[in-house]
Write a protein that binds this DNA or RNA. Structure first.
Lengths: 226, 226
DNA sequence: AGTGCGAGTCAACAAGTGTTCACAAAATCA
DNA sequence: TGATTTTGTGAACACTTGTTGACTCGCACT
């Protein structure tokens, strides 16, 4: 499955000729994906997107769409894959930040908020399609989330933060964290940027929620029979 | 703002004449709302619904739509209101169940799961449009959720379960609970009914998550400066 | 050097869309 | 009872939609 690094943010305008053919193909493929993301971020849901609409936004003729995707469903799955990459990138960065220090919860939430804002399009898509719209896309997003949760639990296990917890319990806790934080993503993205006070309060709320979960984790006792 | 009790589940077929005029009006208005909910539960998102599609499903001619709603947006807001009623009803029932007993967490989660399944259409809509689609609808759903959270916090305060907690902390905790449980709603609804084992495991996970939050709450200390 | 393949274009189609207007019928009110 | 609202209908409109097939034209391989 071919993917692309989402970095270059291939906006329109720069249509200068890239020599190689497959590069050109990947470029318009990316333009289609970006067009879809842009429309979604402007207040549309994936299932409401039309093929023509996307190609129009991408600056291509409708028929070109079929050179890259069989149908909208396939494009949606490609978007899920991109979103999954973005999630993994977050995990990778968190891993680099090393072992927890004092006030690690606050710092983590701050980093997460920044990350969501830096990848607003992907998080809009992920958070949105995680619950709504097409069952197929929803299932795919859920898969990515599950993978994310498992990797996160594995990381925590290896950091040996909570050795008394079974892996199942770690999964359960990470599931709770990820659900809350993906829910938070929508709130973060919806908050207008020119309201620093509201941002502070929201951040404070999420820091408290994570702290609460942390406290609960410290007290967690495994069920004897498990 | 006129509402209707969602109970009678006015399905098609029974189009026998109800004498009074406003009753007839409410009836087809309800048919339109139900048609929208049905389409959504079949894997569509609200923003993707078409006016004609809804009237077709409701068994009315397209132009009749305008007798009840100015446009789709208005219908969406009516759906949000219905969903809000359903949430309040849940709270009311929980209130009746009285003070917590032993194993209250497990029982609450079981009751919630049942309630979600009994009101599958509304929860599909609420959980779905809480994060996706139209910003206007999203905001309206968020409002309903906030009201729900506040009422829930108020209830807990009056039950005097955790007297050491400030109301702000109660809100923060209820926010966490509601986010998790609304997220859970989608998972509950997506799980095919003929898999009792999967249902058991999912229920167990959510019971554990709620227990963890409960443990964290017992340990929660207010920030001194707050 | 020359051929072929494949990304993108163009024109066309049948269907479906939201919205309009004038009209029918029946419950409501005088 | 007669006049008036008001709910629902029918036809028509200007557009948009997804998908098709035949086409250009230039990179890529022999």
């Amino acid at each position: 499955m071919t993917t692309r690094t989402p970095r270059p943010s291939r906006a329109s305008g720069d249509d200068s000729s890239l020599v190689t053919r497959s590069e050109r193909k990947q470029r318009t493929r990316g333009a289609l994906l970006d067009a879809a993301l842009k429309l979604i971020s402007e207040g549309r849901s994936f299932t409401s997107l039309g093929l023509r609409e996307i190609t129009r936004e991408a600056g291509v003729v409708p028929t070109s769409f079929y050179r890259h995707f069989r149908d909208m469903e396939e494009l949606g799955l490609a978007l899920v894959e991109e979103g999954g990459l973005t999630l993994r990138r977050l995990l990778r960065e968190a891993r680099k930040r090393g072992r927890p220090d004092v006030d690690m919860v606050r710092r983590s939430v701050e980093v997460y908020k920044q990350y969501v804002e830096d990848n607003r399009l992907h998080f809009f898509f992920i958070a949105g399609e995680r619950h709504g719209g097409s069952p197929l896309i929803r299932r795919a997003v859920r898969n990515e989330a599950t993978h994310f949760i498992n990797e996160m639990a594995e990381d925590i296990r290896q950091l040996n933060i909570a050795p008394q917890l079974s892996f199942q319990s770690l999964q359960m806790i990470c599931n709770l964290i990820v659900s809350s934080m993906l829910s938070a993503a929508t709130d973060i993205l919806d908050l207008p940027p020119n309201q620093p006070q509201a941002h502070k309060e929201m951040l404070e709320t999420y820091v408290q929620q994570m702290r609460l979960i942390f406290l609960g984790t410290l007290q967690w006792k495994e069920k004897p029979g498990r």
